[in-house]
Design a binder for these strands. Structure first.
Length: 192
DNA sequence: TTCCCGAAAG
DNA sequence: CTTTCCGGAA
């Protein structure tokens, strides 16, 4: 796992509303073109946009350049390591900021995307259908669950679990959590 | 058609 | 609060 905050930032911006598998396909070429914050800050908008074409959301080209430019000017060419500073940057919301803090700086913060939210709601029997970023109860729960010292490993596992096992169509038959999952219990009752 | 490791703008 | 950004695979 890459722990260079810049690489994490770049990856997380590319992953927004974009399948991880397709990002993985193009990420190496991005990193080769723009290996550091400084390279990205002086990037050509049109070239960057061309690289982004197969991934969609081309606003990200403008975001990335402004982002890098401001990191050079305001943070000495480094990625800031505070949530409030990160979310001031274009294209960086609460989710992306937490992902950078976790995977780039090894902070034990929670990372709650729509998939993780689905898992937590199922397991703990929560109702919410609001966006995860505004569901305070869910965020509190998610935060309390992060094991001290293992934030990155825990979050990566949870993300993968949400994608591979507890997806939109849950695979309860091969799920190790079914015994303690509220959703599974309700489901069994439903079948009977 | 929906969905993808969201954020900004309206 | 809702819409828009965005292409491509399933």
């Amino acid at each position: 796992m890459s722990t260079d905050p810049y690489r994490v930032l770049l990856a997380e911006i590319l992953l927004q509303r974009t399948p991880a598998e397709r990002v993985a396909e193009f990420y190496p070429s991005f990193l080769k073109e723009y290996p550091t914050v400084t390279h990205l800050a002086s990037a050509n908008v049109k070239e960057l946009r061309k690289l982004l074409t197969p991934l969609g959301l081309q606003k990200r080209a403008q975001w990335l350049i402004e982002l890098a430019t401001r990191m050079v000017k305001e943070y000495g060419g480094h990625v800031p390591d505070r949530q409030d500073e990160l979310t001031k940057l274009p294209g960086v919301g609460s989710y992306t900021a937490n992902a950078i803090l976790c995977f780039g700086f090894r902070r034990d913060v929670s990372i709650v995307d729509v998939n993780v939210a689905r898992v937590l709601r199922r397991v703990f029997g929560l109702q919410g259908r609001r966006p995860p970023s505004r569901d305070e109860a869910l965020l509190k729960l998610a935060s309390d669950l992060v094991p001290r010292g293992s934030g990155p490993e825990y979050n990566e596992a949870l993300l993968d679990f949400a994608a591979l096992v507890c997806g939109p169509e849950p695979r309860c038959g091969e799920c190790p959590l079914s015994r303690l999952c509220n959703f599974y219990k309700e489901r069994v009752v439903e079948v009977i």
